[in-house]
Design a protein around this nucleic acid. Structure first.
Length: 860
RNA sequence: GCCCCCGUGGCCCAACUGGUAGAGGCACCCGGCUCAGACCCGGGACGGUGAUGGUUCGACUCCAUCCGGGGGUACCA
C-alpha cells in the first residue's frame, strides 16, 4: 500500500550508515528512542504544577481523544502539531500547561461491550492505558501529573454537580418535543449531532420521535455566542467562526398576528372553535399585502388543533399526510428539490392589514420548531411559497416592484416560476406603496404595533441542546422523580450518582435506558420527602463531559470543587487549542456556552474558553479517508516501526500548512528520517568545545543561524511549521558545507549552528534533538535549553543584491550596501552595463528606485 | 442554489503581502563511493504561476469574468 511495504521486516530503513569519512556511527532512531525515554521520565521536563515556578504561564491544549483502540495517524498529526506549539513556548521560557485526558464515556465502549460481552469500563480503561503508553513513546510533551478520564466517578461527580447548578438556574429543563432519533443507536440526538440527516456517529438516517427529554437552554446565550465571536476574530479560523454564525442563524424580522376564523364541524364529528389569534414570524413584513395563503407545520400542535375543527374528510386526509411525513426520513425531508405537498384545512386566516381571507394549509415545508411553526406565504417574493402556490393553484400577488440590472421589471413570478426576492418599491400595498424595503418594514411594523398585532423580533436557527441519552455508558442525570415532589435534584453532598455495574444489565439498545433495568439503583427515597421515588435513567450526552474538561485540568485531583478558582484565574483561558475541524460546531459551541454560563454563575471571570484555535487537517491515503473497508489504512505503529517516532512527527509538520489535509502518499517519512540523520551527523562532527567563543566563527554561517532562529519564531507563532522545517534543512545544509568544504568542524560557528539546529528540532523531533544535544556535550533536557538568543547585528547583511530592471525585466544585478541612498543607487544602476545594453539609444522616462533591493528603469 | 477557500516544475509545497518565480522535500537523470546493490556524497534537468482581460514603472500577489478542485450550508419563512 505504501512505501512501507517495500521495507522488509527486520531491516529498519532509518538505520543509515555513515561511510564517507570512515566513521562507524550511524543514526539509529529506535536506539535513540530507547536511550532517552527513561531519562525524560526521570527529568519530567513538562511538569507545570510547581507553585513556586517563576516562569509566566501559558495553557496549550490538544483536544482530548476518545479511547477507541490505539492511536492512529490522525492522532499522530494532531499531537505532533500541538507539541510543536507547546514545546516552542517552553523553549521561550514559559511554564506551559499541556495536559491530556480521555473523553471516555460514549457509545463505542458500550457497543464493543454488547458485541463482545465485555465490561465497558474494562474496555475503556484498557484502551486508555494503551493510548497513554503510545503517547509516551510518541514523546508527547504532556504533563502526566494532570490526567483525567471523564468516566471516572471523581470526574462525572462534577458533571452532575454542574447539571444541578444549571437546573437551579433554569438552564437545564425537561420538555416533550419532536426529537431526532437514531434507530441504530436507539437514542436521541442533539441537532448538532445530525449531519445531513444522518447520525453524526454511525451515519444512520435519523427519524423523529416525540419524547420528553432533558435540554440545556443554550438558546438563551445565542446573542452572546454570536457577538462574543468578535473577540476570536483572527485567532480562530474564519471558517469555524462562519460555521458557528450560520449555525446560530440569527435573523431579524417581525411577528405578525393573524386571526384564524372559527369553525364548527360538530355535525361532522369535528370540533367547534371560535376565532383565534395565530402569530407568524417573517423576515419580510413589508410583503404582508402579498400574503395569499397561510401555512402551518403539519407536525405542530397548532396544526393538530386547527384540523380538529375541519371537516371529516380533511381530518382523514390530514392524518394520512401526517403519518406519511412522520415516516419520511430526515434525509429525504432535507432534499429541497422535492415537490411541495400539503393539505388544505378548509380554515381561513384574516390578513391583519387588509382583512383578506386566505386559506390555511398544513405542509411539511414549514418547520414546527422554528419561529411559531406557521407562516404567511408570499409566493411572489419567496421561492418556497411560490412552489407551493403553483402546486396548489393559489394566487400570486406582486407587492414589490423588483427591477433587473437593466432597470426593467423582472418577469411576473406567476408566469416565470421564479420568485423575486430582491428589493424595490412597494406596490399593491395600500399605505406602503412607493416605499423601499427598509421604510416599508418600519412603516408596517409601526402600523401593526399600534393595533397590538405585530412587533419586531429576532429569531435563531439554534435550538436548545438535547442532552439526555438512552444509553448506559455516560454520566447519570442526577434527578429523582418523586410522585409527590416532582423533579428533585440529588443533593450535592450525595454526588456522584454512580453508574450501577453493567453486570446483569441488558445493554442492548432498545429505546429506553439500560439503567431502567437496575431496579435496586432506580428505586430510591426521594431526597426531599423521603417517600418512594425513582432515579432518572437517562445519561448525559458525552459532549457535556467535554464542555468543561479544560477547567478541570488545573486541579484534576480536587474532590471538593470542580476546579480550583484561583488556579483557573492563573491559567485560563486556554491560549492555544489544537484539534480537528470536525468539532467546529459541536464541541466548540457547547464549550463556549458552558463557559458563559459558568461566568454568569461567578465561577470563571472570562467568557471565551479558547482564545486561540488551530485546526489541523486530516491524514488521508490516496486521496481519501483511511479505512479498513477501503483498504487504504496506514497503521501508525507500522510507520513508527519503519521510520521512527521523530521521522513521523517531522513528516506531519513538514507536509504542508497544518490546516491542509496530508495525503500520506505525497509525503516521505523516509526522507524525513534521512534529513534527521544528516542533522544528527552534524552533532557528531562538531569539533569545538562547549562554550567556545562563537564570535570568531564563520560569519556567513553565523548570519544564517541567527536569521533562521529569528524567522523560526515568527513562523512557529504563525503555525508555518512546514516553512520552519525547510529553514532548518537549509541551515543543516549550510552547516554541512562549512564542515566539508569551508572552515571545517572546529569552527565555532559550526557549533553555534548545530546547537541551534538541535533546539529548533526539539520542537519536531525530540529524540534526535536530545541525542544531538548530548553529542554536543550538554546535559539533558534539550527541551529546556531555551530559545537561542538572536544577535540583532547578525540579521543585517553587509551587502544586498540589487536587481536592476529595464521595463520590468531583470537586466543586471548590483552588490550594494543595505543603507545605500536612492540617489547613489540610481547612479549605479544607470551606469550598469546590462542597463546600457538593454536601453540602447532609447531615452529614459522614469526610474523607480526601491533602495536597496530594486531599480526599474522605464524607457521612453 | 447560496457562501467561503484554493489552483506555482512530474508530485507535496515556498516566495519579505505589489519588487530577482524557487527556499525545502519527494521522484527522476548523471557522476563519485561499492565486487554489486542499498545508503551516503556531489552535480543536473524541468515550469513562467488554471484562462482571458484590466490596474501598475512592475502582478503568483490587486480587480473583473470564466474554467477546474475542495469545503460549508441548504425548505429557518
Amino acid at each position: 500500500m505504501t512505501q512501507t511495504d517495500a521495507t522488509p521486516a527486520g531491516a529498519p530503513s532509518e538505520s543509515i550508515t555513515e561511510s564517507t569519512d570512515g566513521r562507524a556511527e550511524r543514526f539509529d532512531a529506535q536506539a535513540i528512542q530507547e536511550r532517552w525515554l527513561p531519562v525524560w521520565d526521570e527529568k519530567t521536563p513538562f511538569r507545570s504544577g510547581d507553585p513556586a515556578d517563576p516562569r509566566p504561564k501559558k495553557y496549550v491544549l490538544d483536544m482530548f481523544p476518545y479511547p477507541s483502540g490505539d492511536l492512529h495517524m490522525g492522532h499522530a498529526e494532531a499531537y505532533a502539531l500541538g507539541d510543536v506549539v507547546a514545546r516552542y513556548w517552553v523553549q521561550r521560557g514559559f511554564n506551559v500547561m499541556h495536559p491530556i485526558g480521555w473523553d471516555a464515556f460514549g457509545l463505542p465502549a458500550e457497543n464493543a461491550a454488547i458485541k463482545r460481552g465485555l465490561d465497558p469500563r474494562a474496555w475503556t480503561y484498557e484502551n486508555i492505558a494503551q493510548q497513554k503508553a503510545s503517547m509516551r513513546r510518541y514523546a508527547c510533551s504532556f504533563d502526566w501529573d494532570r490526567v483525567l478520564q471523564t468516566c471516572d466517578p471523581e470526574y462525572y461527580k462534577w458533571n452532575q454537580w454542574l447539571f444541578n447548578k444549571f437546573h437551579e438556574r433554569g438552564l437545564a429543563y425537561r420538555r416533550p418535543s419532536q426529537v431526532n432519533w437514531c434507530p441504530n443507536d436507539q437514542t436521541v440526538l442533539a441537532n448538532e449531532q445530525v449531519v445531513n440527516g444522518l447520525c453524526e456517529r454511525c451515519d444512520t438516517p435519523v427519524t423523529k420521535k416525540k419524547l420528553t427529554q432533558w435540554y440545556f437552554r443554550i438558546t438563551e446565550y445565542a446573542d452572546r455566542l454570536l457577538d462574543d465571536m468578535s473577540q476570536l476574530e483572527g485567532r480562530w479560523p474564519d471558517k469555524v467562526l462562519t460555521m458557528q454564525r450560520n449555525w446560530i442563524g440569527r435573523s431579524q424580522g417581525a411577528d405578525v398576528t393573524f386571526v384564524i376564523e372559527g369553525a364548527d364541524t360538530t355535525a361532522d364529528g369535528g370540533a367547534q372553535q371560535a376565532d383565534r389569534d395565530v402569530t407568524v414570524y417573517t423576515t419580510r413584513p413589508d410583503t404582508l399585502f402579498g400574503a395569499t395563503f397561510f401555512v402551518v407545520a403539519v407536525d405542530s400542535d397548532l396544526a393538530a388543533d386547527l384540523v380538529a375543527a375541519s371537516p371529516a374528510a380533511v381530518r382523514a386526509e390530514f392524518a394520512t399526510y401526517l403519518e406519511k411525513v412522520r415516516g419520511t426520513s430526515e434525509i429525504e425531508r432535507l432534499s429541497t428539490d422535492r415537490e411541495k405537498t400539503g393539505v388544505f384545512l378548509q380554515r381561513f386566516a384574516v390578513n391583519p392589514v387588509n382583512g383578506e381571507k386566505i386559506p390555511v394549509y398544513a405542509a411539511d415545508y414549514v418547520l414546527a420548531d422554528y419561529g411559531h411553526g406557521a407562516i404567511m406565504a408570499v409566493p411572489a417574493h419567496d421561492q418556497r411559497d411560490l412552489d407551493f402556490a403553483k402546486a396548489f393553484g393559489l394566487p400570486v400577488k406582486v407587492v414589490v416592484d423588483v427591477r433587473g440590472e437593466d432597470g426593467e421589471p423582472l418577469p411576473d413570478p406567476a408566469v416565470s416560476g421564479t420568485a423575486t426576492a430582491g428589493v424595490g418599491a412597494m406596490v399593491n400595498s395600500g399605505p406602503l406603496d412607493g416605499l423601499q424595503k427598509a421604510e416599508a418594514i418600519s412603516a408596517i411594523v409601526e402600523l401593526l404595533a399600534g393595533k397590538g398585532l405585530g412587533k419586531e423580533t429576532t429569531n435563531y436557527r439554534l435550538r436548545d441542546w438535547l442532552i439526555s441519552r438512552q444509553r448506559y455508558w455516560g454520566a447519570p442525570i442526577p434527578i429523582v422523580h418523586c410522585p409527590a415532589c416532582g423533579e428533585v435534584r440529588v443533593p450535592d453532598d450525595q454526588l456522584p450518582v454512580e453508574l450501577p455495574p453493567s453486570e446483569g444489565l441488558d445493554l442492548k439498545p432498545k429505546g429506553t435506558s439500560p439503567l431502567g433495568g437496575a431496579t435496586d439503583w432506580v428505586n430510591v427515597d426521594c431526597p426531599q420527602c423521603g417517600g418512594p421515588a425513582q432515579r432518572d435513567t437517562d445519561t448525559m450526552d458525552t459532549f457535556v463531559d467535554s464542555s468543561w474538561y479544560f477547567l478541570r485540568f488545573v486541579s484534576p485531583d480536587r474532590d471538593d470543587v470542580p476546579f480550583d478558582p484561583e488556579l483557573v484565574r492563573q491559567w485560563l483561558p486556554v491560549e492555544q487549542y489544537v484539534g480537528g475541524v470536525t468539532h467546529a460546531i459541536l464541541h466548540l459551541l457547547y464549550a463556549r456556552f458552558f463557559t458563559k454560563a459558568l461566568h454568569d454563575m461567578g465561577m470563571v471571570d472570562f467568557v471565551e474558553p479558547f482564545t486561540g484555535l488551530l485546526n489541523q487537517g486530516m491524514v488521508l491515503m490516496d486521496g481519501s479517508v483511511m479505512s479498513k473497508s477501503r483498504g487504504n489504512l496506514v497503521r501508525l505503529s507500522d510507520q513508527l516501526a519503519d521510520h521512527g517516532v521523530d521521522a513521523v512527527r517531522l513528516t506531519m509538520a513538514f507536509a504542508g500548512p497544518p490546516e491542509d489535509d496530508i495525503d500520506w502518499k505525497d509525503v516521505s517519512p523516509a526522507g524525513s528520517a534521512r534529513f534527521l540523520a544528516r542533522a544528527w551527523r552534524l552533532a557528531q562532527d562538531v569539533a569545538s568545545p562547549v562554550g567556545v567563543d562563537v564570535s570568531t566563527g564563520d560569519v556567513a554561517l553565523r548570519r544564517q543561524t541567527h536569521r533562521t532562529v529569528h524567522e523560526a519564531s515568527t513562523l512557529v507563532e504563525g503555525f508555518r511549521f512546514n516553512v520552519v522545517v525547510a529553514k532548518v534543512m537549509e541551515l543543516v545544509n549550510a552547516t554541512r558545507k562549512v564542515i566539508d568544504s569551508g572552515a571545517g568542524p572546529a569552527d565555532p560557528a559550526v557549533r553555534e549552528a548545530t546547537e541551534a539546529v538541535a533546539i529548533l528540532l526539539s520542537l519536531f523531533a525530540p529524540y534526535t534533538a536530545e541525542d544531538m544535544w548530548s553529542a554536543l556535550g550538554h546535559e539533558p533536557c534539550v527541551a529546556l535549553a531555551g530559545w537561542p538568543v538572536v544577535e540583532e547585528g547578525l540579521l543585517v547583511t553587509e551587502t544586498v543584491t540589487c536587481v536592476v530592471q529595464v521595463a520590468g525585466k531583470v537586466r543586471d544585478r548590483l552588490e550594494v550596501s543595505p543603507s545605500i541612498t536612492e540617489d547613489a543607487l540610481r547612479e549605479l544602476a544607470l551606469a550598469a552595463p546590462g542597463v546600457q545594453k538593454a536601453l540602447g539609444d532609447k531615452g529614459i522616462r522614469t526610474v523607480v528606485v526601491r533602495a536597496p533591493k530594486l531599480v526599474n528603469v522605464v524607457p521612453a
